[in-house]
Amino acid sequence: MKKVVLILSCGLLLILAACSDTPGETKKTTIHISAAASLKDTMDDIKPLFEKAHPTIKLSFDFGGSGQIRERVESGAPIDGILLASKKDADTLSKQKLAKDTKEFAGNELVLIEPKDTTQIKGASLEQLLDNADKIAIGDPESVPAGAYAKQTLENLNLYNTEKAKLVLATDVRQVLSYVEAGNADAGFVYQTDAELSKKVQVKEKIDENLHEPIAYYSAQVMGSNKNEATKTFLDYMNKSEAQKTLEKYGFKATK
């Protein structure tokens, strides 16, 4: 009798174990991507599109200045892939053999913004707009690419030394936007894509692209990640038509 009970118990356990593996249930690989702050809204759209097309991969993001992301990779933070707004930072990581397979996937434009309610000065030049501002917000040029492009612009116009005392440094380009929105700065340098997201600011000047280095975004795999295949799938996706159309929707320039 005991043998019969034991056999029945074992059989029941096998049935329960089989039932616990729900048909169609797929194990997912979560990859962590560190991305430039200016990409946040775009990634909010791209995440569900990618996960629908690749149901075995789940995306996790954090956002910040490209220089900050580079420093986190250098310190060994658990990151699988990066999306940077800086060729310099991408190249630095590649040279240190901390990142590989670097690819350009988007472009952008630099603009000068002011609060929406600022009185319009018809026909004012960039120099006049800056001269009229008491505080000018830019990303920290040491860690924020948009800030580096802004500094290059001021230097090429021979305005950096005269405007330096007015500069308010921010940790990333979104903080620059928030400073201008709140009236804590009279003007600020941000990307066109950031300006388009806000109803509280106005674009006063599109910056001549010859005044700064080309603005481009780069993807790369982080060396040491044990999720190379899944990470490569996502980073390759950023250059495919669905992702490129989403980037264009937010004002980014598609790769050629």
Rank of each mutant, 00 (worst) to 15 (best):
M1Q: 10
K2E: 12
K3H: 11
V4K: 14
V4S: 09
V5Q: 13
L6W: 13
I7N: 12
L8N: 06
C10W: 14
L12E: 10
I15E: 11
A17W: 14
S20E: 10
E25Q: 15
T26G: 04
K28C: 05
K28P: 00
T29I: 15
I31E: 02
H32V: 08
H32I: 07
A35S: 12
A37F: 03
S38W: 00
T42R: 00
D44A: 11
D44P: 01
D45S: 15
I46M: 06
K47D: 06
P48S: 07
P48K: 10
F50T: 00
E51Y: 06
E51L: 08
E51A: 05
K52W: 03
K52T: 13
H54A: 09
I57K: 01
S60K: 15
S60Q: 14
F63R: 04
G64D: 13
I69Y: 03
I69R: 02
R70H: 08
E71L: 15
V73T: 06
E74L: 11
S75I: 03
A77S: 15
I79H: 02
I79W: 01
D80M: 03
K87F: 10
K87A: 09
A90W: 01
K97Y: 11
K100R: 13
K100Q: 15
F105W: 10
F105L: 09
G107L: 04
N108D: 15
L110N: 00
E114P: 03
E114G: 12
K116E: 11
Q120Y: 14
G123I: 06
A124L: 07
S125E: 14
S125A: 10
L130V: 06
D131W: 13
N132Y: 04
A133L: 05
A133G: 03
A137F: 04
A137Y: 01
D140A: 10
P141S: 05
P141L: 05
E142S: 11
V144Y: 01
Y149S: 10
A150Y: 05
T153G: 11
L154H: 04
E155Y: 10
N156K: 09
T162E: 14
T162W: 03
E163V: 12
L167G: 00
V168S: 04
T171H: 14
D172Q: 11
V173S: 13
R174T: 15
Q175A: 15
Y179A: 08
V180C: 05
V180S: 00
V180L: 05
E181Q: 11
A182Y: 07
A187W: 02
A187R: 02
G188W: 00
G188R: 03
F189T: 03
V190Y: 00
Y191F: 15
D194K: 03
D194A: 08
S198Y: 09
K199V: 09
V201R: 02
V201A: 06
E205N: 14
I207F: 03
I207G: 00
L211K: 08
L211E: 09
H212N: 08
E213L: 11
I215M: 14
I215G: 01
Y217E: 07
Y217G: 02
Y218M: 10
S219C: 14
S219L: 08
V222K: 00
V222H: 03
M223L: 13
M223S: 14
N226I: 12
T231Y: 04
F234N: 01
D236G: 04
D236F: 07
Y237S: 04
K240R: 12
Q244C: 08
Q244H: 06
K245G: 01
L247R: 00
Y250G: 02
Y250S: 01
Y250H: 12
G251M: 09
G251A: 12
F252M: 06
K253D: 12
K253I: 13
A254E: 11
